[in-house]
């Protein structure tokens, strides 16, 4: 079973722990990439290496899988998309993405169907959920355009920079992806 895929313009591949540190750092050091989660941007490359190791361990235990979206034309990593908190009993998981400015709706419409179809057809997941910091309008528009439905807002889910954070819940059921 291969976890690496390809579209016309992109490679969708699992990261390689000792090779992708610089590319991941470049993506996750952009404050806009993870503000919707919310998470602070990375400040040193060692954080990216640590994250790669962590993700590799979580992948080994089939708890999460994260893919790097690499543009074929120049090798640039334009996004990271993954699933975590996979519940194999309930057949659901949380989707998470970190997008660079070069990854918008058009690019997502090219790569997301490959990932979603894999999760649904091969891993048999029925429900994908994404949680966004309330007020993440750009991300919210992308999700809605892709077919996700807004289900409500979970209050005070975490504290971030001294503020209580509410998270909006969006979901996509099998067959709902809009491309």
């Amino acid at each position: 079973m291969s976890w690496n895929f390809e579209t016309e313009q992109f490679l969708i591949r699992l990261p390689v722990s000792d090779q992708d540190g610089a590319a991941l750092f470049k993506l996750l050091s952009q404050s806009s990439a993870a503000a919707h989660i919310p998470r602070l941007p990375m400040t040193v490359e060692a954080q990216a290496l640590d994250e790669l190791r962590r993700i590799a361990m979580r992948f080994e235990t089939r708890e999460a899988a994260f893919w790097l979206i690499e543009r074929k034309s120049d090798g640039e990593v334009v996004a990271r998309i993954g699933v975590q908190y996979i519940n194999w009993m309930m057949l659901n998981a949380q989707l998470q993405w970190e997008l660079s400015a070069e990854c918008g709706l058009e690019e997502l419409q090219e790569v997301l169907p490959v990932i979603v179809n894999y999760l649904s057809d091969d891993l048999h997941l029925h429900r994908l959920e994404m949680r966004l910091r309330t007020g993440s309008d750009d991300q919210s528009k992308l999700l809605t355009a892709l077919g996700f439905s807004h289900e409500g807002t979970l209050p005070s889910q975490m504290e971030f920079e001294g503020e209580d954070i509410d998270l909006d819940v969006y979901s996509l059921l099998k067959g709902e992806l809009n491309i």
Binding site: M90, N92, E129, E151, G152, T153, L154, P155, S171
Partner: peptide
């Protein structure tokens, strides 16, 4: 109070699911 209705959030059979209403009190 009701915060969200999670569609098909609970699996009840091989291919059957139920919605979950998530309530919160702070």
């Amino acid at each position: 109070t009701l915060a969200a209705r999670l569609r098909d959030g609970w699996r009840t059979g091989n291919t059957e699911f139920s919605d979950v209403e998530q309530y919160h009190w702070i």
